[in-house]
């Protein structure tokens, strides 16, 4: 029990990351079911035709629903959305994983692509929250 708890807390120590563990999966279940529904072309069409109405089909919390309507990607991660399911919302908008990831970092897509072409983000300074604060 203690060891499991320590591991869960250790996940929370990674900066800029919401680890999709069993608790977050539980919290995000209905949100992720909504996102999963966007695998079907007719559902993508219905969602885009009336986003607010379509999201009412799913038992999401109001905060999750607002996160969807505003494409508030990091908030959706925090509320239990998993990135691969969130990507279906990005695809429904005609965007890519890369676009979604860039929005999560606060960069433009162009800036993000340039960072990746230079070898990506170094893990230095990003391994733990204390290391991150030391750099900030």
């Amino acid at each position: 029990m203690t060891e499991v708890k320590q591991k869960e807390e250790a996940y929370e120590d990674i900066p800029g990351t919401w680890v999709f563990d069993a608790q977050r999966a539980r919290q995000g279940y209905h949100l992720n079911e909504f996102l999963y529904s966007l695998m079907k072309a007719e559902n993508r069409k219905a969602f885009l035709a009336d986003e607010a109405e379509y999201t009412k089909r799913f038992r999401m919390t109001e905060a999750q629903r607002q996160g969807v309507l505003h494409r508030d990607w990091n908030r959706l991660l925090e509320l239990g959305g998993v990135s691969y399911a969130l990507a279906k919302l990005a695809f429904t908008d005609g965007k890519s994983y890369q676009y979604m990831a860039s929005r999560m970092t606060g960069m433009t897509e162009k800036e993000y692509v340039e960072m990746m072409l230079k070898g990506g983000r170094s893990p230095d300074g990003w391994r733990s929250k204390s290391e991150r604060q030391g750099r900030a």
């Binding site: 990674i14 900066p15 800029g16 990351t17 919401w18 990091n74 991660l77 990135s83 994983y97 979604m100 990831a101 860039s102 999560m104 970092t105 606060g106 993000y112 960072m115 990746m116 070898g119 990506g120 983000r121 170094s122 893990p123 990003w126």
Partner: peptide
């Protein structure tokens, strides 16, 4: 191999790893 596609830390790559 190394990658992260979520959150502000997205884009992480660790080539030595």
């Amino acid at each position: 191999m190394s990658h992260q596609i979520q959150g502000p830390r997205a884009g992480l790559v660790n080539t030595p790893f």
